[in-house]
Design a protein around this nucleic acid. Structure first.
Lengths: 223, 223
DNA sequence: CGGAAAAGTTGAACGTGTTCAAAATTAGAT
DNA sequence: ATCTAATTTTGAACACGTTCAACTTTTCCG
């Protein structure tokens, strides 16, 4: 990795990065080779590895850059809407739009379930990304007047993150025209989730929420 | 792949297969090399590829063999129990027991979400395995008197398969002593699911089941 | 400037999964 | 038994991601 932000070297890094994205888009992440990326950027193979620890690291950099780019828009969303529904809709919609030009590449970043794999959405390596994402869901809930039992509420941000991750995965591999099936999935599942949250106060569901709370504790640990 | 079942060649195939499992267990799937497997089996590198199309194919063979081994026990389970709960518990427990000696290796077979990756549980390459698995859940439901709206019932086998897959994944990566967290997860989620199915008749949930049916149709297609 | 340290750049080399043409062995027919 | 075709076995070769020692350029201090 580059130590200092020398302007020249930062330009080289950017050239390699953009060459990589270009090659990824053309050939797909797997078929793309580091040699081709280096050639496309006009540097030697070793230079690519001077700036990026690995092929995977380039995808990580891509995701982090995308996350940065989304920040202002997400802030605006939180400031300009109050209900959980409008916020969730906006946040997730924003992700779709941001990643649309590199939809397939996003697959490379989330193709792995294994929490030990660096590119897994559940890995330690992606914890930073995950936490920043989750923080927005936390804020989306925080000021929106959602009522949930205290045994469940603390887990809601992480559950929403999981929900959004599932949507993104479906989207990445959705081969329908203009990802219409994902749009349908989004609409219906969002409605169901909000309905579920609304129903939380109903006594009938109490026996379901108790084990649900214990379950979440078992999975995630204490709040 | 071997064309005919010559006894000699079948023995060689078995030697390579068992050598592979041994090396996988010792080194892990990733660290294991085809050269080491071949050496362990006492054949040249090329021989391993004569019998198995790829390193991945060995893991597939492993899963298919395990599935075969489970068959009689699963049949016995279906014959000797009637309730959905006892059947699900037995089927899933059977899987845990069968795969326990190669728990980590199972991770290699299910580490990928990408439906295009050969080893993904959602890929075309694993469709046969998936269908055979799902068939058992279908039979487990079929004769157990479960009542569900017809807009949902047809999807239940696939949903149960998904549930079981999730459990297995959690189990594979569960680092708690004797996978105690998975046991807890199994217990609680199974209870919740059965409760949910019981509640299906309650009018209050009707507004939730309607969109649920549409959702399933959107995901899986018609029945 | 001058020169040394730091930053950047190079391409050969390693170990990997996989392929393949060639060699060795076995099976089957005459 | 002999010859031919099929099956099995071999190991060199390929392209890949990655490492690294050597080389070149830039930076910085006197």
């Amino acid at each position: 990795m580059a130590r200092k932000v020398t302007l020249k070297s930062e330009a080289t890094r950017a050239r390699i990065f953009e060459a990589a994205l270009r090659v990824f888009r053309e050939r797909g992440f797997h078929a793309a080779t580091m040699r081709e990326i280096a050639a496309e950027a006009g540097v030697a193979l070793g230079a690519a590895y001077y700036y990026f620890d690995s092929k995977n690291a380039i995808v990580m950099a891509f995701y982090e850059q995308a996350q940065q780019k989304m920040l202002p828009e997400l802030e605006r969303t939180l400031a300009s809407s109050r209900t959980l529904e409008s916020r969730l809709r906006a946040i997730i919609q924003q992700k779709f739009e941001t990643f649309a030009p590199n939809r397939a590449l996003l697959g490379a970043l989330s193709a792995h379930i294994d929490p030990d794999h660096p590119l897994s959405p559940f890995s330690a390596a992606t914890a930073g990304i995950r936490d920043r994402d989750t923080a927005f869901f936390e804020r989306a809930i925080g000021e929106s007047g959602v009522r949930l039992p205290p045994s469940i509420l603390p887990y809601l941000p992480r559950l929403l993150w999981l929900y959004q991750m599932g949507l993104m995965l479906f989207w990445v591999y959705d081969k329908s025209a203009r990802q219409a099936r994902t749009a349908l999935l989004f609409d219906k599942t969002l409605a169901m989730m909000l309905l579920l949250i609304k129903l939380a106060g109903v006594p009938l569901l109490r026996p379901l929420y108790r084990p649900a709370g214990e379950l979440l504790k078992a999975i995630y640990g204490e709040g």
